[in-house]
Write a protein that binds this DNA or RNA. Structure first.
Lengths: 245, 245
DNA sequence: CGGGCTGTTGACTGACATCAATTATCGTGG
DNA sequence: CCACGATAATTGATGTCAGTCAACAGCCCG
């Protein structure tokens, strides 16, 4: 966890600077992001004008706990890991941001301090939009607010799903439920979105338990673990029997 | 869990009916709801015109699993309990809706089937808005989309907080964290939003464990339990020492 | 090729679930 | 308004699953 990314310096120049050539990079960023996908070319341009791209190297911090943020961060390329630091030093992974995912939406509506760290797990490109700019955009572009609402609703759904999973006291159905969701209830190979120790924390168990439970599923002929970051579900029926509801 | 509320029959008449007198009840409903609070009188009226009030008696169902919904439900008075039914018959409480809270936002953006039951825990008044009406409203009223986004962001925040709590393996800090949040980090008496057995499920433990942990907190002089549904926090400092981060 | 980090495996322990029985509380009807 | 019954909540005894500590193996990196 290196020192936090020093991109603040540039922010001073703000969005007064609207020459065409300087917009190029921003436009690329905007056009990649699902939230903006439905917008017309000119609408995208107006989004791009208030967008600011930032870059984070692997292991670099995008932001840290305690920072007040009025900024929406959207991942363009790479991956960002959001986590808490418990007082015992353990890291609780909240979420992993892949391209198209975003964070900071809460800060956009209620002044609040980041309660988590955001760290790039690989070289990452992000777009940022300030609160003021976003509220202005929403007023101008109704389709944008629909897209944002849809994205938030999706996030909410998955957060509630995670909470439901975590409420299960036994580790095996908890893991089964997670895998089920990950594979979309069918057989096939999927990449794990994070390392196994992070996944263990995410699922509310220790790395040791996760390892044992994965082994248990493997010896039952339900899954196969391929390499370090892939799992192949071979028997989705048995998996769903282990999973809740 | 009685038979589901039969309000579908009336829905046929839709929002073509716009006589002033029929709007009265709808307006009362709309004006109570925080999401609409910031709107002007005339904006509220246009909301009220697409709103449909429904009523549920204590124990009555607002909706059930499997129903396809394109409707947003907003609680005006009373209380609604959202829960899953696990295959072992136990009820997992997802959330409790108090006046101003709403549910159904996911269905508004992605066609989807209710995965939960909604049951009134007391005599309850709700407003409903159909998907079509809401999308139309959002286009017309930017402040509404801001309010909705804000409300969704709040919900998201609390869902993520619940997930973080549930990831804690030990029952005591989990309970402490919950109580802390419930009381707003100060001392004082609070009503539990649900029965203790529901609360136990919500916190991912058994009723027995919850009872024991509450007793432990009580004998440590941190809380007092009053009656069946109230807890008084007497030492918020000790409580926060037990709670995480 | 070597070092460190990630992941695995094993033995042990403790906390929570489970099962069973008792007590408290609330709502209801007499 | 009180007594009763039903349900909720508590308490106790016991078993078990998962956490802890420790050592080892495997992969990726330099």
């Amino acid at each position: 966890m290196a020192g936090k990314q020093d991109f603040k310096g540039d922010v001073v120049m703000e969005s007064v600077h609207t020459h065409e050539h300087s917009i190029e990079r921003e436009l690329e960023c905007v056009s990649q992001v699902p939230i903006f996908q439905r917008l017309s070319a000119e609408q995208m341009t107006s989004v791009a004008q208030v967008t600011r791209p930032i870059h984070a190297e692997k292991g670099g911090a995008v932001f840290s706990t305690g920072e007040v943020s009025q900024t929406l961060y959207i991942v363009n390329q790479g991956q960002v890991r959001l986590y808490h630091l418990a007082e015992d030093g353990r890291e609780q992974v909240l979420r992993v941001l892949n391209p198209g995912d975003f964070v900071g939406e809460i800060a956009l509506f209620t002044d609040e301090i980041h309660a988590s760290y955001a760290e790039a797990t690989k070289t990452t490109e992000l777009c940022t939009i300030s609160r003021a700019s976003l509220t202005a955009l929403i007023k101008k572009l109704p389709p944008l607010s629909m897209a944002l609402l849809g994205a938030l609703a999706d996030r909410l759904k998955s957060a509630e799903r995670q909470a439901t999973l975590l409420a299960i006291p036994d580790a095996l159905p908890r893991l089964a439920g997670y895998l089920q969701e990950l594979t979309g209830h069918t057989t096939g190979t999927v990449d794990l979105p994070m390392s196994k120790q992070d996944l263990a924390a995410y699922l509310g168990m220790t790395p040791e338990s996760l390892s044992r439970k994965l082994r248990q599923l493997a010896t039952s002929g339900i899954i196969e673990t391929i390499g370090r970051r892939q799992v192949k579900v071979t028997d989705s029926i048995k998996l769903s029997e282990l999973a809740p509801s």
